[in-house]
Nucleic acid binder design. Structure first.
Length: 528
RNA sequence: GCGGGUGUAGCUCAGUGGUAGAGCGCGACCUUGCCAAGGUCGAUGUCGACGGUUCGAAUCCGUUCACCCGCUCCA
């Protein structure tokens, strides 16, 4: 599936359904009809997400001497976002063509000259119907357009309001026609000549008021929910540098929530209004930026491989000139083949010294770094691997989802739904099952095993129904191992098998025997 | 934001103006010596929400919320 438009909505629907059925992901405030673009993680989803975050933190913070972690506040000072350019520069003015409803970037409409034909409303002969609503059309005489074009378009526009579909818009009578010559107008869609709506600002940041008694119109009380975790890192650059005694190159990592008022949340949790990021800002000397960007790309690809997302399902988009943010010299998007299309999981961007430079200028506090060896002073450059945590969780689920057709001894077909998580990501590492519930010895031993493993890994005890059914239930939860306490465990087949259990493997459904005393080490090895 | 579709049990869905349904799942008990669907019993729910029409609305109308698809957008 390398075609971007290749999608599988049915597969996605099954995944969404499984997520709810098994308690991975629920819609937020479902009880009250749902909250647009917000999702809640259930018991299994919370474990899965935590495993991902823990592993990311372990690989990028704990196991590296050159990266420090922080956990910044979500509420953000407005000056931080003024300096970063989020307030002011980045909200796009949008307007809609009143006739075709096409959405246009207001700042991208070329100024046009021509004659504006304006109307105050319209009516329909021999009926009660009429509408009073101003509307205009731009006519360009040099394109051989005339008043007939204007009237035709206006009739189509007013025709939208006709309730009776039998009536032809062509017979509409226009009211109050007037004309005016204009130069350099941007109020009309160049493609149709139709009037567009007034430009509206789409500011995608969540605004709030600081202080319990602050007045709603007090500009000094305005704060924002951060639209990205990155800015918290930039504004703490000096603090971390001084307290950690790091030297360039070094990075600051953070996992945390960010908020964007997405115009159109879509594709399950993929585009949410509240989401979690896993970001590193890796500070370096200017001459190392390009090389480190490539190195980080490789490291991040390795990471995805380790959590069970194969390299061949990932696509690297080398974002071309003109499509990158203006301050970025190089950006790679790491994309995954979701069932709804190829979509971005992570961006690895070389942001130059833009961010620290901006905060230096805006705050008036120097952000430069003195390299003692080279006796040089400069503003550090930064490489940013910025991963979407919820998107990666979704990718893990999509990648793990599998339906398998099994044929039993009698040739009867049967299908099995399995989430093939890699063991270190699996929400439940092992299920502990007494073969028979009515065997008191089996349930007692199984519960003892549960108690002994619980402090170290997430395990699940289940004694209900036939063991085969319990195995299948764990397959849908993605549990890689089932530990079954049986009659051999009790010593019925002799001392050799006494105090051992059956370990049933999720993917192959094969079994092996392991001594109870060895279980913890056996499992820890498998889940790293 | 526009256009199209959908919304009934945990899940998948039937029910088109007259007492709220099925399969699976779930819980209890029985059965079960290693791969789901054996037996008995049981709970499922403001039919997305609000308003209207009607003697009567899951069903018709309006509004709204949410999800899906296509545009659009995504610093």
């Amino acid at each position: 599936m390398t075609d971007r438009s290749n999608t599988d909505p049915q597969r996605m629907e099954k995944i969404v359904s499984l997520c709810k059925r098994r308690g991975f992901i629920f819609q937020s405030a479902e009880l009250y009809g749902g909250l647009n673009g917000c999702w809640d993680y259930g018991p299994l989803g919370a474990e899965l997400k935590k495993n991902l975050k823990d592993y990311w933190w372990r690989k990028n913070v704990r196991e590296r001497d050159d990266i420090e972690g922080i956990d910044g506040s979500i509420l953000t000072h407005r000056e931080v976002l003024t300096a970063s350019g989020h307030i002011g520069g980045f909200s796009d003015p949008m307007c809609d063509d009143l006739l075709t409803k096409a959405r246009l970037r207001a700042d991208q409409i070329e100024p046009q000259d021509g004659v504006v034909y304006s109307y105050t409303g319209a009516g329909y002969p021999d009926t009660e119907w009429s509408v009073e609503r101003p509307y205009s059309v731009l006519i360009k005489p040099e394109e051989n357009q005339n008043e007939n074009n204007a009237r035709k378009i206006a009739k189509q526009y007013y025709g939208q309001f006709l309730k009776d579909k039998e009536l032809s818009p062509k017979k509409i009578s226009l009211a109050g026609e007037s004309t005016e010559e204009v130069k350099g107008t941007t109020s009309f869609n160049p493609a149709t000549g139709s009037l567009v709506t007034e430009p509206r600002e789409f500011n995608l940041m969540f605004k709030t008021q600081m202080g319990a008694s602050s007045s709603e119109d007090d500009p000094n009380a305005v704060a924002y929910l951060r639209p990205e975790t990155a800015q918290t890192i930039f504004v703490n650059f000096k603090n971390v540098l001084e307290t950690s005694r790091q030297k360039l190159p070094f990075g600051v990592a953070q996992i945390g929530k960010a908020f964007r008022n997405e115009i159109n949340p879509r594709n399950f949790t993929f585009r949410s209004r509240e989401f979690e990021q896993m970001e590193i800002e890796y500070f370096c000397a200017p001459e190392d930026g390009m090389r480190l960007t490539d190195e980080w790309l490789e490291k991040r690809l390795d990471f995805y491989e380790e959590i069970g997302i194969p390299r061949e399902k990932l696509h690297i988009l080398d974002v071309p000139d003109g499509e990158r943010a203006f301050y970025s010299k190089k950006t790679y998007d790491i994309e995954y083949e979701f069932p709804f299309g190829i979509q971005e999981l992570e961006g690895v961007a070389y942001r130059t010294d833009y961010d620290l430079g901006k905060h230096g200028d805006h705050s008036g506090k120097a952000m430069d770094y003195f390299d003692e060896e080279k006796r040089e002073r400069f503003v550090p450059h930064v490489v940013e691997p910025s991963a979407g945590c919820d998107r990666t969780v979704l990718a893990l689920i999509c990648e793990a989802y599998d339906e398998e057709v099994l044929t039993d001894d009698k040739g009867k077909e049967d299908s099995r739904t399995v989430l093939r998580f890699t063991p270190k990501m699996a929400p439940i590492k092992a299920a502990i099952l007494p073969l028979l519930k009515k065997s008191e010895d089996q349930t007692r031993i199984a519960k003892e095993i549960q108690k002994s493993l619980q402090p170290f890994i997430n395990v699940f005890y289940d004694e209900s129904g036939a063991v085969g059914r319990r195995y299948r239930r764990q397959d849908e939860a993605g549990t890689p191992f089932c530990l079954t306490v049986d009659f051999d465990t009790l010593g019925e087949s002799g001392d050799e098998l006494k105090n051992t259990v059956t370990i049933r493997h999720r993917d192959s459904m094969e079994q092996e025997r392991v001594a109870i005393d060895d279980l913890l080490v056996w499992l820890l090895k498998k889940i790293q």
